[in-house]
Simulated scan of single mutants.
Amino acid sequence: MKNINEQGSVSPAVGEVSDIYRDGTYLRNNPTLHGEDSAYKFAYIRRLLTRCAFPEKSVRVLDVGGGGGIIAALVCEQLAQQGLQVECHAFDLSPEMLAQQRANNRFNTLATSDFGEIRRQRYDLALLIDVVEHIPDNGLVADDIDRIARQVIYNIPIERNLLDWLRNLYMKRRYYVLQTASLGHVHFYSYGSAKRFVREHHQPVASIFPDYPGHLLESDFPDYVVQRANRLRGLELLLSRFIYRRLKPLAPWLIQGSLFILADSRSRPR
């Protein structure tokens, strides 16, 4: 993602961080674009969609930084099954990702890297799934989204927790550095700071802390199979699932995961 000014151009303040999306580095580091997690993520997004209100039969969805566009396609299909007429726009820095979004989402009518074009539109629902951790000036982008979209669904990785703190110590304080290098994360959120970020820019409606360790333990994706085969990582995942199931109120502060949040716009009426 990028730092965006009022005209929609890229700010030089982003520097090399945004270059990993434009020069193909992110795609080389993450060739699947996390498509292996799409069904898992959509299962929670679908629960939040039941809390969404669409006053008109025609619904316009905005997908910001949506990778291959699979999650947005699933959202649009779900809304279409409810009898709504759906149109989707996608914003991303990478031309390769935009091409995949056009191919994967039959509801997509606009895929662009020009945020100025997006800012001139109006949307019923915006999707920012695993996005704000990549954007240096993410508060400015959140304010823009609040002005143009009636409702927004976020997924924000929770990377400030006990186990990740211990992981960072074990890796000689290199864990977060490597997250930035490989994934482009420039912000790292705790459960509390993720909620606070959304509350500062929108009106929160509902949130879900998902069963991420359960997903990693049950998925047949090869990388997750390799993770489970590592004795230390496998033990961590089993401990995390135990905490998720038995100490759920404390889980967001203790284990790896993310936070799905539905929020209403402060600027636009529902």
Rank of each mutant, 00 (worst) to 15 (best):
D211P: 02
I243F: 04
A103C: 05
E96L: 07
Y40R: 05
P12S: 10
E218T: 13
H202L: 07
G24H: 04
E133I: 02
L216D: 07
I70W: 08
Q101L: 04
S267K: 09
G67F: 00
R266F: 05
L163E: 15
L178N: 15
F91V: 01
I45F: 03
V132W: 01
H34E: 14
D124R: 06
H201N: 10
S94L: 05
H201G: 03
L235P: 05
G214H: 02
R106Q: 09
C76D: 05
R246P: 03
I71T: 02
Q151K: 02
P12Y: 07
L166N: 07
I148G: 01
L247Y: 10
R102F: 09
P31I: 02
I208M: 00
R246E: 11
R160W: 07
R51Q: 13
R268W: 13
Q78H: 14
G139N: 11
Q82V: 03
L84W: 13
P252K: 06
D23C: 09
Y123L: 03
A263C: 00
R119N: 09
V132Y: 03
R173P: 09
L247T: 06
V226R: 15
A72N: 08
L259I: 00
Q7T: 15
N104I: 00
V14K: 08
D114L: 03
N108I: 12
V198G: 04
Q7L: 11
L128D: 06
I70N: 13
S38W: 02
L254E: 04
P213Q: 12
V131A: 07
L98C: 03
L49T: 04
A229L: 13
A13D: 11
M171A: 13
Q227A: 11
R60K: 14
V59N: 02
R120K: 13
I158R: 10
Q82Y: 09
Q7M: 11
Y26W: 12
R47A: 01
V141H: 07
R122W: 07
F107Y: 13
I71D: 03
L217F: 07
Y26S: 06
R119Q: 12
Q121K: 12
Q151T: 00
I145A: 00
R122P: 01
R246L: 12
E87G: 04
I20E: 01
G69H: 06
D211T: 01
R231L: 10
G35D: 12
L48Y: 00
R233T: 11
R106E: 06
I156A: 01
I45G: 05
H215R: 13
A72E: 06
E200S: 12
K2I: 10
R174C: 11
N108P: 05
F197T: 05
V198D: 03
R174K: 15
H187D: 08
F115Q: 03
L169A: 14
P55M: 09
A181F: 13
P31Y: 00
P204I: 01
T180W: 14
V64Q: 06
L27Q: 10
C76P: 00
V177G: 12
G116N: 03
R270I: 15
V14C: 12
A72V: 02
Y170F: 12
L140G: 10
Q7D: 14
H187F: 08
M1R: 06
H215F: 15
S11A: 11
E87I: 04
R122K: 09
E36K: 02
E218S: 15
E133P: 11
L235Y: 08
